[in-house]
């Protein structure tokens, strides 16, 4: 599908102010939405809209998406061909991250592409800055605070030093 095709496009173009044109984020902090699995996209928007996953930026925008039609917008981003982040990481950090990545594959899969059955998202190709900040939010129980389903991943993050979180972010960002 083209970047302005489909019923979700008129709502989705508003998101490019942060997430890049057609969801192809070019920055280190904003997640790529292009090619995002629609089950995960919808969960994220619903969590933001309910105020469960707190974000001053995303809570209002999530409500706007729900208002205009969540299914259409999810289908729009799922249909965009994903290009990986242009932000590159230090090769040494990537190697250190690779060595520590086994603790993630149990849930995110050996490929890092996630598993809809377990509610686990794709990590690959996302900007390293975004992956790292989300891990720090898990560690501090600031992403969806108190969510029972995220207890295990948060407990795991709490055992990992911040420097290793940065290495893991570099690694998963580099995986294709």
């Amino acid at each position: 599908a083209g970047p302005l095709d489909g019923p979700g496009a008129p709502t989705a173009v508003i998101c490019s102010a942060c997430h890049g044109f057609a969801g192809q984020s070019q920055s280190n902090t904003m997640p790529i939405l292009a090619g995002m699995a629609s089950w995960y996209f919808k969960k994220a928007i619903q969590d933001f809209a309910a105020g469960k996953r707190t974000s001053p930026e995303m809570e209002p925008y999530a409500k706007q998406v729900v208002q205009f039609g969540l299914d259409d917008v999810a289908a729009y981003f799922a249909a965009q061909k994903r290009t990986v982040t242009p932000v590159t990481s230090d090769p040494a950090a990537i190697e250190r991250g690779r060595a520590a990545a086994a603790q993630c594959t149990l849930c995110h899969g050996a490929s890092g592409k996630g598993d809809p059955a377990k509610g686990v998202p794709d990590l690959t190709g996302q900007p390293p800055g975004y992956l790292k900040s989300q891990m720090l939010l898990f560690k501090a129980d600031k992403r969806s605070p108190g969510d029972a389903q995220l207890k295990v991943v948060k407990a795991l993050m709490a055992t990992i030093p911040d420097e290793q979180l940065a290495d893991l972010a570099a690694y998963w960002s580099s995986v294709r």
């Binding site: 102010a17 920055s27 280190n28 001053p56 409500k63």
Partner: peptide
Amino acid sequence: IEQKLTPGQSEMWAQNAVGWATSIWQD
């Protein structure tokens, strides 16, 4: 629909500001 403010000031929101500027200038 809604207006929301950051609960305070932080480096994370400054980094998000850089992300916003990068994206919107390109847009």
